[in-house]
Design a protein around this nucleic acid. Structure first.
Lengths: 217, 217
DNA sequence: GTCTATATAGCGATAGAC
DNA sequence: GTCTATCGCTATATAGAC
């Protein structure tokens, strides 16, 4: 009976192996430079398996992102709801709610998720229109909710300046997760961006100070 | 006589046309996705011309970057030397010296240079090891000089925290020039990142406040 | 569902005529 | 210096056997 009610172990394994292999390769080489041949080889699967499971390379790309983004966004919204927006450190709380789920992905599972953090940082800059639109679709609601919360805390900051500042927050965050290797190397090990606690410890005060700066005349 | 002493007009034109075409295509599609066929077609040149003038695609990439980075870095260092590091707004002055030359490139020439700003923003995130190493080579001296100046102004900020904060500055700046289109669209025209004055007006106070935040315990 | 084999197209690079 | 023609390779995608 079971073989008709649920996919066999092999089915699940191949699909997941393809997602894992694609995620790590996308993170290392970028999406475009990762060929289906390299992905299926790393996954120990056949070249045609990608088209069977995901239809096309683009289908695989979407699946790689949505697999991680769904739980990530849920966690962000859960943390946001737990924030006290009237507290003195409300800005810090909200920044932490947005940043820590992504940065802490590296801790929760031995491997794979850290690749995803780097991939996410790069994805915002992807030249491919499709990738960027798909991404905005996936995180649009979260961005809207966080923008609203920060707008209320920072009131009466004008909307224009709020959007500019959130743009800088996104840039600093994306750069940190995408180029952590560069900072570690450039600082000769003094900075350890792969440690989420250290990254949050420095990032949140910096960004909070920027967000709270006086309104530009 | 002249034809033996200097390159003919055609020679120069082909070389420059290739650089212009490559710059705009790299900016639109990314480096890897820009084929030599597409570049030479846009330049109105022959496919083989790239290999004649630059030896390879990598040679073309290097030439595209160094053509703009040499004058850009000279201007940055010139502005840095004109900063008063003891003034109250020393941080703002140094940030302006680093940021404005890149952001203002769009003003100085009608087209082409703005593509380069976007290309620069993306380049830091390029998956290709070669591109990133070449870039560090080209801007290493400038980064060293600006790090030293900001370290002196922000003294006694610990070196570790200084490097982290400069990392955030780089992220915000890169994201702004690379994803200006996204902010313009997302803000429904309220923010105009293609206007260098507006970008600097909001970016410098934000980053200066972050850099001057109290030392993290 | 997984495999082999292949279709179709594009890539960077080079040789050699002009 | 510029051109055409082509080599050798890789890409995504698919058809059909098992």
């Amino acid at each position: 009976m079971t073989e008709t009610l649920s996919p066999t172990t092999e089915q699940v394994d191949t699909r997941e192996a393809l997602l894992d292999a694609a995620e790590s390769l996308f993170s290392e080489l970028g999406i475009q430079a990762s060929s289906l041949r390299a992905i299926t080889q790393r996954a120990g699967a056949n070249l045609a398996a990608v088209h069977y499971h995901f239809g096309s390379k683009e289908g695989l790309v979407r699946a790689v992102f949505s697999r991680r983004l769904k739980p990530l966004n849920e966690q962000r919204l859960r943390l946001l709801e737990a924030c006290d927006l009237t507290a003195d450190d409300a800005v810090e709380q909200v920044l932490n709610a947005f940043l820590s789920p992504l940065l802490r992905m590296s801790r929760e599972t031995p491997e794979g998720v850290r690749d995803f953090a780097r991939l996410m940082g790069r994805a915002y800059m992807e030249p491919s229109e499709e990738v960027r639109e798909m991404l905005l679709e996936e995180i649009g609601e979260v961005v809207r909710r966080f923008t609203e919360a920060l707008g209320r805390i920072l009131s009466p900051l004008p909307g224009q300046e709020l959007l500019w500042r959130l743009h800088f927050v996104a840039g600093a965050m994306g750069h940190t997760v995408a180029c952590s290797h560069a900072l570690e190397k450039h600082s000769h090990g003094l900075c350890q961006p792969s440690n989420p606690d250290e990254a949050l410890r420095f990032m949140i005060p910096f960004l909070a100070a920027g967000l709270r700066a006086g309104t530009t005349p």
